[in-house]
Design a protein around this nucleic acid. Structure first.
Lengths: 108, 108
DNA sequence: ATTATTTTTGACAGATTATGTCAATAGGAA
DNA sequence: TTCCTATTGACATAATCTGTCAAAAATAAT
């Protein structure tokens, strides 16, 4: 998975794009997900939070990479935490170091 | 600010270290913050969430870099979002790209 | 144009989570 | 023990999240 191709869209925007490419109305997708149309509409526009489960179901419905969607999903959550913070970029760097450290020392 | 020196401690652990270095009991710091002792105790042990305001006050009380503490504070929030996620590191990379992109195109 | 379909919006109640207060308990030092 | 500090859990309240619904707006179809 390359990073460049997916750096700008939010998970919601990506999901809307996928739905439109599949020419599916909110109504049908919401039915497949067994959630209300209003909620799906808000999820696509970032007004309601997505869940990992919904993201995975949508990857299956749209036949799109679940990993790509999950990265966008996590990225959105991260961006939400550091929004408008001057030190956001620095915090991301420290977090990366920490993740690498944890991965290197993970329990067996 | 270097990254290496602050990659492993959580914000709570760092705050406890600072308090002990200053030889201040929870009671006194809590009084300065105007919060309950129990809450401060839990904040230092990661059982309660810190707020940006409290972090800044503590930086002032301990005469320690507010930027350093804020980075740890944001880092903890980021780590919380990606905990146990295999794609966490990838999400962090994408988030970094996005932050850089937003910074380059920020409105005036 | 008007009808049908899709999408958005807002209000609402219930569930879940966060927060502050307090008291009891535990731990350590004098 | 006594004193000071720190931890834990229970509780009420506040804030946030979640699903449901209906009305309104936007878009497409006939």
């Amino acid at each position: 998975m390359s990073i460049g191709i997916m750096s700008t869209k939010t998970i919601g925007e990506k999901l809307r794009q996928l739905r439109e490419e599949n020419k599916l109305p909110l109504r049908k997708v919401a039915a497949l997900l067994d959630i209300d149309v209003a909620i799906l509409s808000k999820m696509e526009r970032g007004e309601r939070k997505l869940t990992k489960k919904v993201v995975l179901k949508l990857a299956n419905i749209y036949k799109y990479s679940a990993d790509n969607l999950l990265v966008l999903f996590l990225c959105d959550k991260i961006m939400y935490e550091i929004q408008d913070e001057d030190l956001g970029e620095k915090a991301l760097e420290v977090a990366e170091k920490r993740v690498k450290y944890l991965k290197a020392n993970k329990k067996k």
